[in-house]
Design a protein around this nucleic acid. Structure first.
Length: 421
DNA sequence: TCTGGGGTCCTAGGACCC
DNA sequence: TCTGGGGTCCTAGGACCC
């Protein structure tokens, strides 16, 4: 039996844990740069605001209804996520962390009552973290996803939604658009509709050969999962990343190459940290820069370049040096740049890296110890305890986040104070 | 003025190898 | 008339997820 544990309006719930006055009010959390709505409380959803709406377009509605608005505080959400996952791990025999706010749990025991175990999972997370969750329970991951969706729509189920007997499964599938099934996106939903498959029950009963031909093996797996045949396994430990991306829009347009250099160094350094965290090195690096595509009357320029490194590395100074040269190769003056980013590819375990006979510089034990020391200082003493000067100090190009809450769980000076009288 | 940031997988077709 | 059989690697494009 699969259990999908899904946090309700996760980012909003994180804000509410430390700010109970937000209960019952419409609350939204914005994407980086205070760009779009990425999390909405139920009250905010009731105002008819769609996920992903640009903030500046819905600001007035939010203001009118007294909504609380937050910049995204990933330090807080990341730490709360860790707590939720640790709570689950304390009773889940097998578990996969699927995203920042979702985890799959599997229980093989035939003795356990699914509803009771689901309720236990839910109770533990709520009690230990204050984050409300919905648990969807079914025979496959895809059906568990559907179960949790239904659970969120039906407050009377108390946050635990079981989709067990086939009669109920059929009923639920018949009432569900095919496009709302996990694994069926916009394009496939449209294709299905054109072929007379509208609801998920019709998808489940679709012809295997047709599905295989039109939706590849991936689509066929989804169909099997709807039939109760488990095809998508539980991945208990995440596989190492094959690509690492670090990019951001700027808080304002950037024209000077000196500022772009800071940003590019900053992204390269972040990507390198992610790379080292999984014990890998990267063999190639991509840099892209672009202007603001929404400003149609501005001159537009966007360019990406990929270079192969002479030797795979995770050494930050080398990646920064490379990024600088790449920037010089594509930068053109006279444009208002809005975004830049670094991507790392050809990622392999550090121990497997091939040494280049013709390379004048090899990553030595010394450089890797240096990086290890920097990483450890930053993880124990706080982000950016040490960073490279090339990343810039004032970072005036940095992102806007004017409505940031405190880092209640990760910064000493932000810990909430409680006064008892 | 203002529009996010990460990722993965599959397939077809072409080039190449013995 | 009739032109083998078995592979790998790479790329672009398309799909999906949170």
């Amino acid at each position: 039996v699969y259990y999908l544990v899904d946090c309700n309006n996760f980012y909003v719930s994180c804000e509410r844990v430390f700010n109970p006055a937000l209960a019952g009010r419409p609350v939204v959390v914005l994407s980086n740069n205070d760009g779009n709505l990425v999390a909405l409380s139920n009250e905010a959803k009731e105002l008819g605001l769609p996920f992903g709406a640009p903030y500046f377009k819905v600001k007035d509605i939010l203001l009118k209804h007294g909504a609380a608005v937050f910049s995204s505080n990933y330090t807080l959400y990341g730490d709360m996520s860790r707590r939720v996952m640790e709570s689950l791990a304390s009773i889940a025999p097998e578990m996969e962390i699927y995203s920042i706010d979702e985890a799959f749990v599997r229980l093989r025991s035939r003795n356990a009552d699914p509803f009771e175990f689901g309720a236990a999972l839910r109770e533990r997370v709520v009690r230990w973290t204050g984050i409300p969750v919905t648990v969807g329970i079914a025979a496959t991951k895809t059906l568990a996803k559907l179960a949790s969706r239904l659970g969120k729509k039906d407050p009377s189920c108390g946050g635990v939604s079981v989709l067990a007997d086939d009669g109920r499964v059929k009923e639920a599938l018949a009432a569900c658009d095919a496009g709302d099934i996990w694994g069926v996106g916009r394009a496939y939903a449209e294709k299905l509709r054109k072929n007379g498959i509208r609801d998920a029950l019709a998808l489940r009963e679709a012809d295997d050969a047709w599905v295989r031909r039109n939706m590849t093996i991936v689509g066929l797996r989804t169909v099997y999962e709807l039939r109760g045949v488990s095809c998508i396994s539980l991945d208990e430990l995440p596989p190492p990343k094959k690509a690492i991306v670090s990019s951001r829009s700027f808080g304002r347009p950037v024209e000077a190459v000196s500022e772009l250099r800071e940003a590019v160094a900053f992204y390269a350094a972040r990507a390198a940290v992610k790379l080292r965290r999984q014990g890998s090195v990267a063999g190639s690096i991509t840099l892209f820069i672009s202007t603001n595509r929404f400003r149609e009357n501005d001159p537009q320029y966007s360019k990406a370049v990929t270079w192969r490194l002479p030797e795979a590395t995770s050494y930050t100074p080398r990646l920064i040096e490379c990024a600088f040269k790449m920037l010089d190769s594509i930068y053109r003056p006279g444009f208002r740049y809005k975004k830049a980013g670094i991507m790392l590819y050809e990622i392999i375990p550090a121990a497997d890296a091939q040494i280049n006979l013709f390379c004048s510089f090899h990553d030595s034990e010394k450089t890797s110890r240096l990086m290890d020391t920097v990483d450890r200082l930053n993880s124990s003493m706080g982000r950016e305890t040490l960073y490279f000067a090339a990343q810039g100090v004032s970072r005036e190009w940095g992102m806007r986040r004017g409505m940031l809450s405190r880092c209640y769980t990760t910064k000493w000076k932000d810990i909430p104070e409680v006064h008892a009288r």
